[in-house]
Design a protein around this nucleic acid. Structure first.
Length: 753
DNA sequence: GAGTTTGAAACT
DNA sequence: CAGTTTCAAACTC
């Protein structure tokens, strides 16, 4: 059955791919011609390719990923797929973190390497080759480790030989590239071939991670390799989309479905991206079905995927990886975490997101979709995480959010360093995008390693952060369940009772999901959406990135200063949509519409001092809007309240938030900034990177709100953002915008069956 | 770790 | 849409 289906798919893919490929190739050629490309080439042979891919990828990715998050139908489909994958790859019964997983991760890495190798070989041939590579990478899930391994191997002649010898496909690759006909075929072949390779590697033993971490050089080397996969601009973009599609395809039931989906995806995706995604999916599936080893690989990927709620987050994370890779070893360092993470990735949101949202993610998840911070450091971190990010995105989120992603995954780890935390998912994505657009690579490179190191450390700890539910009555089939809400299956760490949120009950999960989505299409969308303008995002710039909670909170007693408040938990300020009473949200008060932000600032100050009467105070303050103006400065001055994203036990789930830093919005101070920590947290939010998904308003200054700070913005409802594409701004920011746009695109791709 | 508080989710 | 109940996370002790 599988074989036949695959063949059919391949054929289809070929047909479909051909046109797309041609398209892709063209873009590549264009890039080559571009001065940027030349510059990159001058830097290093390998890097240039990557950089090019990145940029391309980003744009495409951004488009595809984001939409999915927002659109309920797509999202649901994606989510479904996610669940499915989890089933296949990870059995709830099995411990994810076990040594086996680590092996798998290694294997996946090997796979990637194998894929890359062929790619490298083929690089000369065509851009089309890069496409296949990109597909592989995506499928891998992208643990940084994997990427590292891959790159490393790629360097070695042995790996090359293996690929060629082991996989007939490898030899075929060039042909494929030329033909452009079957990306999916390539991928499959590559994967299969990879398996043997993987075995070899596994046998040999793989402490690649350690090695990598130790040898920065290797890392660097790897990074380029990573970039290679991304090379295809269209391809890159495709990746994110591919994941979702892959997920859908991933459904255990049918590899068959994949082909159809692929076709659809291609059609939908105006770009090659779709094709790429489909190919990646095929690869995954093929790998799974084909061999146990393949399955393992897939499982690894899934792991990443599991927690990742948001596809787009994953995309972003990938981008980050690429960027990170390009930037240097530091990123790689963070990757080691990935090794750990793979299972835990989910811990993230979803790191998710990064690039989430999920992120992610990041999460998506969406909610995943919580995510990253604004600061440059954060960006760096994100990148690093992205390294993990890929993994995250693909897999880690959950454990989130990542971030990521996963979601959670990815993500999650808000803990420490704010940067990474939840924001990663969402933010990371945005960041990636931004970087990609701006040729962030250079920037990243410029970024200081120290930050990266720090991030690495953080990541390691954070990565673990996973979503773990403790449901007793909901059977983990309601949004009460964080895992379910994040679009991931419950895993061992969960303490849930009578859990139905497992692959075994996939049908139930999907059905329930559909029901919930029918009720509320955005139910599984990231709770926090970025609204910030492109302006704010600049790290250096003080402008606040804005992110808002999807629906707003309804807090009455917590003053929006505790994690009971979803806004606060997500690291975003309250918005007009909030119905909270006595809002003291340090990230930004809701008054926006009615009151001046400044007022909020004042409140914050008070709130920090006195909690008891905070509510009343806040209320009062709200009443007095204007006076506050001056307050803004005070806020910054005063220490920020403890970050919402506490480093406490769990990382905040999701920062999957698509959007970036919330705190800044309104120009209010970020708690993060104010306090010692502040910066990091803010960063996590994703100030910079976070795409302004929702920002229709984005750039526009809030009419209603007084602008204390230049950044002041208003929150835009999620839907608004959905549709729109932000106009790309020059530079990084522009990239961000692109990402946002990409999101909307996703929805189109989703429809599978 | 148990109990309380809180607010989202679900239900009516 | 509003009010109530259910639920699980967040928080406190």
């Amino acid at each position: 059955m599988m074989g036949d289906e695959k063949d059919q798919e391949k054929e289809r893919g070929v047909v479909m791919d051909t046109p797309e490929r041609t398209q892709i190739a063209n873009p590549l050629s264009k890039f080559e011609d571009s001065p940027v490309f030349n510059y990159i080439n001058s830097l290093s042979p390998i890097k240039p390719v990557k950089s090019v891919h990145f940029t391309q990828t980003f744009s495409s990715l951004s488009f595809a990923s984001l939409p999915s998050v927002f659109t309920s139908p797509h999202v649901s489909s994606l989510k479904d797929s996610r669940f499915l994958r989890r089933h296949q790859f990870s059995d709830p019964s099995k411990p994810e973190l076990t040594s086996e997983e680590a092996k798998k991760a290694e294997i996946s890495g090997e796979i990637v390497n194998t894929a890359q190798n062929p790619l490298k070989q083929q690089k000369d041939f065509d851009t089309g080759n890069s496409v296949s590579e990109t597909c592989i990478l995506q499928s891998d899930g992208c643990s940084n480790l994997e990427s590292r391994k891959l790159s490393y191997e790629a360097v070695s002649p042995d790996t090359m030989n293996r690929l060629k010898l082991d996989d007939p496909s490898a030899s075929a690759v060039p042909f494929i590239n030329n033909g452009s006909s079957n990306c999916s075929l390539r991928m499959e072949t590559g994967i299969e071939g990879i398996d043997p390779l993987h075995h070899n590697k596994e046998v040999s033993g793989c402490d690649w991670d350690s090695l990598i971490s130790d040898a920065s050089e290797l890392l660097n080397f790897d990074s380029p390799s990573d970039t290679v996969p991304y090379k295809g601009p269209g391809q890159n973009t495709l990746d994110p989309t591919t994941f979702p599609t892959s997920l859908t395809n991933a459904k255990p039931e049918a590899s068959d479905d994949n082909p159809s989906e692929k076709h659809e995806g291609l059609k939908n995706a105006a770009d090659n991206h779709a094709t790429l995604a489909s190919t990646s999916l095929n690869n995954f599936e093929a790998g799974e079905t084909a061999d146990d080893t393949d399955n393992e690989v897939g499982s690894n990927l899934y792991r990443g995927m599991r927690r990742r709620c948001l596809v787009f987050e994953m995309m972003g994370s990938r981008r980050k990886h690429l960027e990170e890779v390009s930037s240097g070893s530091s990123l790689n360092v963070s990757e080691p975490n990935e090794n750990v993470l793979p299972s835990d990735n989910r811990l993230l949101p979803m790191r998710t997101s990064n690039d989430s949202s999920r992120c992610i993610l990041p999460g998506i998840g969406l909610h995943l979709n919580a995510l990253a911070s604004t600061l440059v450091d954060h960006k760096v971190v994100k990148h690093e995480s992205s390294g993990s990010g890929r993994q995250l995105t693909i897999g880690p989120p959950s454990a989130y959010r990542s971030l990521a992603s996963g979601q959670e995954s990815i993500t999650d780890v808000p803990s420490l360093e704010n940067d990474i935390g939840p924001a990663q998912n969402g933010v990371s994505v945005s960041e990636d995008a931004s970087k990609a657009l701006g040729f962030v690579v250079n920037e990243e490179l410029s970024q200081t390693s120290p930050r990266k190191k720090r991030r690495r450390v953080e990541h390691a700890g954070e990565t673990e952060a996973c979503k773990r539910c403790n449901c007793k009555k909901s059977k983990c089939l309601k949004l009460y369940c964080e895992c379910f809400a994040a679009g991931v299956y419950c895993v061992e760490p969960c303490s849930c009772q009578e859990c139905f949120n497992k692959p075994i009950h996939e049908d139930t999960v999907l059905a329930t999901r559909k029901q919930i989505e029918s009720r509320n299409p955005l139910a599984f969308a990231p709770k926090v959406i970025k609204t910030s303008d492109s302006m704010q995002e600049d790290e250096s710039s003080n402008t606040p990135a804005s992110a808002r909670h999807k629906r707003g909170c309804n807090c009455k007693k917590s003053g929006c200063l505790k994690k009971y408040c979803e806004c606060y938990q997500g690291g975003v300020g309250c918005s007009i949509n909030c119905r909270c009473e006595g809002c003291k949200n340090t990230f930004g008060r809701k008054d926006g519409s009615e009151m001046d932000l400044e007022v909020n600032v004042v409140d914050d100050c008070e709130g920090s001092v006195t909690d008891g009467s905070l509510q009343k105070m806040a209320m009062h303050n709200e009443a007095e809007p204007v006076s506050a103006t001056p307050a803004t400065p005070s806020r910054f001055g005063r220490q920020s309240i403890p970050l919402p994203i506490s480093s406490k036990g769990k990382p905040p789930r999701s920062f999957l938030t698509i959007g970036s830093s919330s705190s800044q919005r309104f120009g209010k101070l970020n708690p993060f900034k104010g306090g010692g920590k502040p910066d990091k947290q803010l960063q996590t939010v994703g100030e910079d990177e976070i795409p302004d998904i929702l920002d229709e308003n984005g750039g526009s200054p809030i009419s209603g709100v007084k602008s204390c700070s230049p950044n002041s913005k208003r929150v835009s409802p999620p839907h608004s953002s959905m549709g729109m594409g932000l106009s790309p701004a020059p530079g990084q920011r522009s990239s961000r915008k692109l990402i946002l746009q990409s999101i909307p695109s996703f929805p189109c791709l989703t429809p599978k069956h």
